[in-house]
Amino acid sequence: MNEILFGYLSFAILALSIAAITRKNPVHAVLLMIVMFFHLATMYLALGAEFLAAVQIMVYAGAIMVLFLFVVLVLNIREEEKGERFASGWPLGISLAAGLLILILIITDKVLTGRQGQFTQAVILQETHTKAIGKLLYTQYVFPFEVASLILLVAIVGAIVLAKKRLG
């Protein structure tokens, strides 16, 4: 992946996410997040994961963020905009985040190498990414796949039960 594309994408992702978490209006934050997810999907494409790029756009930008947008618009949170944007302890929050960053930076050098697998870019290009992932998902990872479907079923039922109006 060339340096200019990486530089642009990383700058855009960081700037958009920082802008998103500092917005007062949640609608603006959600819209900024959608743009951020598109940049992230472009980065997945550049890393050769085109199936995940499509899933990122369909599920994250298309489903999850639209769900957020619905909830933000259904709930009337006009009065929230008047209040304080950050908690009073925000310097503590930023120092905790910085401390965690330094802590992880120290140990990342140790984990950057690993055993090379068999799916080189040439193999994936020849077989196509979706087919390769599908083969793995339906053979070696078929049990986690079924568990994932169960999780989604529980989420559907749970969301309806939690959000429906109490009858009587």
């Binding site: 199936f51 090379q116 068999q118 992932i133 793995l136 998902l137």
Partner: peptide
């Protein structure tokens, strides 16, 4: 991508 392994994608 860098370790040529698809399990990360899964």
């Amino acid at each position: 991508h860098f370790l040529n392994d698809l399990r990360g994608n899964i």
